[in-house]
């Protein structure tokens, strides 16, 4: 009785394995180390993102009395119509309202055009009245209420004193700060 020949599974040759290895290495090597910079706009009519985009952006907001209230600058910005948001990169936000002076800067930012809430992330550095420096990775700032919140680890510095913890809620108006968890602090004379 003729013996039934089972198809022999042949291991891929050395060559193919080497080729796959080289391809993997190439993909890994070419993978961008940091987010692709925004936005690469092709003015030949093809806007990659959003309906408007610009570079070296300055956004100003004035009070009813005509005083400069809020100034936001960014290296690049584009507007996303669907969600009515403006995405910014290398962004700085400064508030001039007396008693609510604030300065925040970060790698990335997002302004919700309806609520005016500002989200900043990536190396966030802030200055809170009277002389407190805030360092974290992400903050939410509501200019209407003057409240800054962050769910991330935070560090506050004042002179040589410092405090760290996780989670922050700060009121620019009342100059109150809450660090929510794992608080460490040092007062250096």
């Amino acid at each position: 009785m003729p013996r039934k020949v089972m198809p022999r599974l042949r291991t891929p040759g050395l060559g193919i394995s080497l080729l796959l290895l080289v391809l993997t290495a190439l993909v890994w090597w070419s993978w961008p180390q940091h987010p692709i910079s925004l936005p690469q706009i092709d003015w030949h009519g093809q806007i990659h993102k959003g309906d408007q985009a610009a570079e070296d952006v300055v956004m100003r907001q004035y009070t009813a009395a005509g005083n400069l209230d809020l100034l936001a600058t960014a290296q690049a910005a584009y507007h996303v119509p669907g969600v009515d948001q403006t995405v910014l990169s290398q962004v700085a936000v400064e508030r001039f309202k007396p008693g609510q002076q604030t300065h925040l800067r970060a790698d990335q930012g997002l302004v919700d055009d309806r609520s005016q809430r500002i989200t900043l992330w990536g190396n966030v550095v802030g200055t809170l009245q009277p002389d407190t420096r805030l360092l974290t990775e992400r903050v939410y700032y509501d200019p209407q209420t003057g409240i800054i919140t962050s769910p991330e680890p935070v560090r506050l510095e004042r002179g040589r004193d410092w405090m760290t913890g996780v989670g922050l809620r700060a009121s620019v108006k009342t100059q109150e700060v809450d660090i929510l968890h794992e608080v460490r602090g040092a007062y250096i004379p």
């Binding site: 913890g165 100059q175 109150e176 700060v177 968890h181 608080v183 602090g185 007062y187």
Partner: peptide
Amino acid sequence: GKGPIQISADALHGENKPQQQAVY
């Protein structure tokens, strides 16, 4: 009575007005 004062706690509330006060 000298040197840095180190503090650790679960939570912190700090105020600047009317006076500088931190409650751990």
